[in-house]
């Protein structure tokens, strides 16, 4: 159902690489379908080697799909019309290291047909935006990884794109750097842009994304709103720590618990669901033991992720 508010539409996209002397087939992306909507921050998640970069490279026209198709802003991938409205930051980017950041951004502006005074102001604005004004005349070879990431983001925005695609924009950055990238993505969203970014760090996605897709071994395993996916992955586990529990009390708790850990006087019990909390509390009171703590397990995308990695089986897609 492609509609006008769909910015990226991916249909049954696959990529098979041939590697090594014998041309062994490696399926990096396997029949992937998903769509990114106008104005949202879309997280493209998956463990290392899941096929995120391969998918993004196909969208950017760097490699050709083995089968399937995709469109960006209503044009088939690789169409200059869509490239003009697109910004892209590759994974661990390398740029022309003999250029200063100012020369670099100017050069990339030219590639969009931007010249003259308007480009100059644009370049200065962007350097300001990513906090690199001080390094304006420094050659990129002298940049740290974090600085490269920043000019990388600046070059992705040079044409004031409608869609910004970032491949692992936060990897390799320190906590402050990650926070800055997150803030920047929020600001892009506020100014009405669509942002698609990949990450293998779920925490970032949870804070940022309207919707996410999770892929594994090239296949889509989940796609939907972050809150829904968290709900799906949630375990509702409750962890209790109890002191001075009698052997009878312990025996009764074992029946309710999914996991029991003994540490001398202290007992740690994990309950599989909140329903058994009341029963467990009754047991503890009856045994005259002391409840030290009771902690509901906070659900996160990580739970779903880990469950999918362990399970290995692609789950049905949630449509939202």
């Amino acid at each position: 159902m492609p509609s006008s508010d769909v910015v990226v539409q991916i249909d049954q996209l696959s990529k098979v690489f041939r590697v090594g002397f014998w041309g062994k087939r490696v399926t990096a992306v396997d029949q992937l379908s998903l769509s990114v909507r106008q104005g949202e921050v879309f997280g493209f998640l998956g463990p290392n080697g899941a096929g995120k970069t391969t998918t993004i490279k196909m969208l950017m026209g760097l490699i050709y799909p083995t089968s399937g198709r995709a469109s960006i802003l209503g044009h088939p991938i690789g169409d200059p019309a869509s490239k003009a409205k697109l910004g892209f930051l590759p994974e661990s980017p390398y740029f022309y290291d003999y250029l200063t950041s100012h020369e670099f951004l100017n050069f990339y502006g030219h590639l969009f047909g931007l010249w003259g005074a308007s480009l100059d102001t644009r370049v200065d604005e962007l350097l300001e935006l990513v906090g690199m004004t001080h390094a304006r005349d420094l050659q990129l070879r002298k940049f740290s990884k974090g600085m490269l990431q920043r000019v990388g983001i600046a070059q992705a925005l040079i044409n004031d794109p409608e869609l910004v695609v970032l491949d692992e924009p936060m990897s390799g950055l320190d906590p402050v750097g990650r926070k800055e990238v997150r803030d920047l993505i929020f600001r892009l969203k506020e100014s009405g842009k669509t942002v698609m970014f990949s990450s293998h760090i779920l925490h970032d996605a949870e804070l940022l994304c309207d919707r996410v897709a999770m892929i594994m071994k090239g296949k889509l395993v989940a796609c939907g709103q972050v809150s829904d996916l968290i709900e799906r992955g949630a375990t509702h586990e409750v962890e209790m720590v109890v002191d001075r529990l009698s052997p009878e009390g312990l025996a009764q708790l074992r029946l309710l618990a999914s996991k029991v850990v003994l540490q001398g006087e202290r007992v740690m019990v994990v309950l599989a669901s909140q329903q058994s909390v009341d029963e467990a509390l009754d047991v503890i009171r009856a045994a005259k033991a002391k409840l030290v703590s009771l902690t509901p397990h906070k659900a996160s995308l990580e739970d779903l992720f880990i469950r999918e990695v362990r399970g290995g089986q692609p789950a049905a897609e949630v449509h939202v």
């Binding site: 490279k57 950017m60 760097l62 490239k83 003009a84 980017p93 070059q155 044409n159």
Partner: peptide, 9 residues
């Protein structure tokens, strides 16, 4: 370095 060139128009 070609990645960011070819993804531009």
């Amino acid at each position: 370095t070609i990645y960011t060139i070819v993804s531009k128009p």
